[in-house]
Design a protein around this nucleic acid. Sequence first.
DNA 1: TTGAAAGCGGTACCAT
DNA 2: ATGGTACCGCTTTCAA
Lengths: 339, 339
Amino acid sequence: MAMKALSKATIYQVAQLAGVSIATVSRALRDSDLVTAETRERVRSAARELNFTPSRPARSLAEGRHAANGIVFPDLIGPYYAEVVLGYEATAAASGSSVLILATNGRPDAAAAVRELAGRVDGLTVMGRTVDDEVVAGIASAGLPVVLLARDPVDGVDTVRAGNSGTARALAEHLVGHGHRTITFLGDPDESPDVAGRYAGVRAGSKGARLTLVRGKGLDLDSGRRAAEQLLTHEKPDAVICANDEVALGVLLAASEHGLRVPEDLAVTGWDDLLAARFAGLTTVRQPMRELGATAARWLNRRIDENSGEQNRTAARRRILATELVIRQSCGSHEEVRS
Amino acid sequence: MAMKALSKATIYQVAQLAGVSIATVSRALRDSDLVTAETRERVRSAARELNFTPSRPARSLAEGRHAANGIVFPDLIGPYYAEVVLGYEATAAASGSSVLILATNGRPDAAAAVRELAGRVDGLTVMGRTVDDEVVAGIASAGLPVVLLARDPVDGVDTVRAGNSGTARALAEHLVGHGHRTITFLGDPDESPDVAGRYAGVRAGSKGARLTLVRGKGLDLDSGRRAAEQLLTHEKPDAVICANDEVALGVLLAASEHGLRVPEDLAVTGWDDLLAARFAGLTTVRQPMRELGATAARWLNRRIDENSGEQNRTAARRRILATELVIRQSCGSHEEVRS
DNA sequence: TTGAAAGCGGTACCAT
DNA sequence: ATGGTACCGCTTTCAA
């Protein structure tokens, strides 16, 4: 019994074993109809015997495409990004494209990493706070299809995002309706376009209340908790609108440590509707995370197809996916109030 | 002003513009010390002017390596996988490797997708319930470095996982210590090696109690909730040990709908220590998710280096990372009981 | 229908 | 130090 081939066989070996040329092997394996059924079968079995798989780099080099696309995101922490990436992967995979991921998190060389990635894919999706617009513009103008996700538009580049300001405004108005008069927005609008949009909406919806901006640094639980320590001993607002759920949950923790009741002594709201929000009774806003990723992947694919075909490039698209207010207990009692 | 090059320049164009051969360009750009500082600079600026980036496929083809590795996981839903993947990505990136992801979720052609992926990377990490051992063995025996994650070992392949049975046993004993006598394990041991390990541990720790196995199908919130409906109207145990947190949270929801108090009427435990568990007061087990991913990436890299170097291959490694019991309120009152 | 051969864009060896 | 050139493994004309 022959030893199984331990390293990769080449198309030449298959050709030799099948007694044909490499051109024929290539055709046979890709179901070209320029090969006899009989030949095809001979090639097939030779390939099987040698455990042959075409070299991806060789294929890509010859075809001039990678059959892969990439997504760049800040972090995978927090269910938010994970869901988006998942939606992206599922859609990309469905259209036969492999997916490369890159988390820029605390990376100092994010721009370089993104450029490197750009060389490995047929198209790139870039999320929020990852790299500067210049990097994006550079890549896009080099001819690589790009889709922006949860991020301010760049000239000529498609953008998909979730609604921020409208729902944020509704949220703020809801709080005011509860009778809250000193409201604090916890989060740094400079941290991400999403946060900026939310803050803008909150401002618009806070007429009749005093709104204070506290720039918490970071969007995780501990950031929220730390910021709250400060907040609850000084400003003492009666409502805190947080940039996202994790921060809000941190505030909830701090509040309980300070013996504050929510919502009686302090109303708290978040953004994202994480699983935890439900169990914490947190009023928040739901985003179509999966759909965000899926839409980006779909659009990117379209651009890639456009690129290869000779159709004239269509104008940059923009879409804002709807978000939804999720009222729970943390924003105030709803026994008597109806909203 | 010249138009920026809209498509990619090749090394030939750079060579021509710099007035040198492509060999020199290659050297200059890769900081070989076989080039004059002056030449290097000339090449550099030519490359910059043409906005040149070496073609990744061409490089890979010539070098015989991808400078990338991949990770295969069932799903990205639930913070568990997300954290693992993140830890993986961070470590892989730190060692200069791009990361390809593949979610096999409900994919019918998972095996084929994994094989495709295998052709794009220098090494592969395969998680839990994704593809059969045969697929893994096939890939590994073809010479591709593989690391298994949260999965039963395969001959000759490295395996990293988190402790299940020991901690599960401690968990069960804790419940028995609370006085619970009819315990149900909710989860299908056939669903994943992890669940199997947990069930085994629970069995060992349930001496003195009546243990029932209820094979819930699925590891998400709704599965838990549905299974609980059944459970709470029939078996009526006084404690439910769930395969993971999401299922447990589903049970919590169902219990509250049935007007059952937790833990007085029903004790519930989970596994993973999701963020939500904390806010639900859920007793659970914490896994070092990030570290699982990081370890896999590190090991894979070592294997890849071994492969290229001529060092003799070391024996397959196995490691079980420690997990930790996290006692909260859902398992029983701790006012009087001390554990 | 099949084969020969010219790329695809690099790397690295061998001369010079 | 630099240039010439033989690969790397596949796809795709162009002829036969």
